[in-house]
């Protein structure tokens, strides 16, 4: 790793001030992507601002028929949260499938969301459940937040503080994991929210997306069979040694049907 300055402020204000001071500074949350990247010398921030000491950013609460998860809440804590398990079991299931136990013990929802890796699980969770990303200065609907591969609506000096998940009527997440990394080759969140049905896909394309044709079909008939004939266009899908674009396109339908079946 290259040399860098390090500070671990204990308040959001101090973290924001430090971030404004240096254009080449980077926030580190769980560090599960940033630190390996820095070890490979593929990133060399001048300074790391560690927000692990800001206690107010972690924790799960219920507010106005929504589950509010602090940005620094670890994946393991989301998976183990009785509140999440009770109100949105599909979200607890999703958190439990991320990486391995040690990654889940460090990695955070805010870090995952800000990174917007095309194969991360949370983007499908947020878009599928119609969540809202809360930052130090505003609220951003998940539909508007994830803009492109590794790109989000966040400003350079903006910090995510929490994610609001409206409690859905029912929801389930199904994923076909890479057997080594557990990243989603394809992951699908299907939810019946109070504002309608949502189907969100991660892993398949450069960025999370919704399948409106499936949403419309499920509105009329909420069964796996109703979406069986709906194919997605895989022309611009991701490809690697594990799965071709065509295979990923096929998996979207399979995982969506499994999610619908799991929602029941």
């Amino acid at each position: 790793m290259y040399q860098f300055d390090y500070q671990a402020p204990d308040s959001l204000e101090a973290a924001l001030a430090a971030l404004r001071e240096n254009d080449e500074a980077k926030i580190v949350a769980g560090g599960m992507t940033l630190l390996p990247t820095m070890k490979l010398r593929l990133a060399r921030p001048e300074a790391l601002i560690d927000i692990n000491r800001i206690g107010s950013l972690a924790g799960v609460t219920e507010k106005n028929r929504a589950i509010v998860i602090g940005a620094m809440t670890r994946h393991a804590d989301v998976a183990a949260s009785k509140l999440v398990r009770d109100r949105i079991p599909g979200l607890a299931d999703l958190a439990e499938t991320i990486g391995d136990p040690q990654v889940r013990n460090r990695g955070t929802i805010g870090g995952s969301v800000a990174n917007n890796d095309p194969a991360a699980d949370y983007p499908a969770g947020l878009v599928g459940l119609g969540a809202t990303v809360v930052t130090d200065r505003r609220e951003i609907a998940a539909d508007d937040f994830f803009t492109d591969m590794f790109e989000t609506a966040l400003e350079a000096d903006e910090i995510i503080t929490a994610v609001h998940f409206p409690i859905p009527k029912r929801a389930a997440y199904m994923k076909f994991p890479n057997p080594a990394s557990r990243y989603a080759i394809v992951g699908v969140m299907v939810a019946e929210t109070h504002d309608g049905i949502r189907v969100a896909v991660t892993g398949a394309a450069p960025c999370v997306f919704r399948v409106t044709a499936m949403e419309d079909a499920l509105k009329k008939d909420f069964t796996p069979d109703a979406i069986a004939p709906i194919a997605v266009d895989g022309a611009e899908f991701n490809e690697d040694i594990h799965a071709s674009a065509e295979y990923r396109a096929h998996l979207v339908n399979v995982m969506a049907r499994r999610a619908v079946a799991a929602v029941g």
């Binding site: 390090y6 560090g31 599960m32 630190l35 390996p36 790391l48 393991a76 136990p101 040690q102 990654v103 013990n105 460090r106």
Partner: peptide
Amino acid sequence: RSIKSCTLL
């Protein structure tokens, strides 16, 4: 809690 010490400063 178990963590990977190669990925922590």
